[in-house]
Design a protein around this nucleic acid. Sequence first.
DNA 1: CATAGGGTTATTG
DNA 2: CAATAACCCTATG
Length: 188
Amino acid sequence: MSTWTRDDDKLFEHGLVLYPENIADRWQLIADHVPGKTPDDIMAHYDDLVHDVFEIDSGRIEPPSYTDDPVELEGDCQISFGSNKKNNEIERKKGTPWTEEEHRLFLIGLEKYGKGDWRSISRNVVISRTPTQVASHAQKYFIRQQAMKKERKRSSIHDITTAVDTKPVPPQSSFQNQRGSQNFNFTV
DNA sequence: CATAGGGTTATTG
DNA sequence: CAATAACCCTATG
């Protein structure tokens, strides 16, 4: 087992987000990116990382079939779009979708640095995203977590954590809420 | 065609 | 700077 320092980890993650997952010699490239590491070490470390992410995700959301990542590549190697000075025409905010890698890295950074440290996460782990993007992604992620958790359990006593579940945004749904606190029934 | 999903921008603490 | 809300676009039924 090779020792993985923070610097190595950082370089590893950088190489991970740098090279896409379609290429075969990805580990070779990443190993070349991180000095003093072999592709086997890289692979082992990546496996550990995936395992960690799986541990995080288990119990919260059901993991889809992610044995392989059949991401379609349409030549979107450039992620940065914010600093375009030569925009004569009004460029629509395209909104770059997050990849599996970025999400995994986000989860890792979330577990490492804790929630709220978007600046550190963006600077150390998810380099391809700005802190604002990371925060936005986190927001959507947690919203989705809550939504599917609510959908799954429907109502339980264990929903009560410390405070009453304040539901600020009731969508157009007429299913029973938890504990019968507030029922929003709307008619079309 | 309506709505849920996902990303960015704006507002507030 | 982070948390939250609002806005907007796209995919999907």
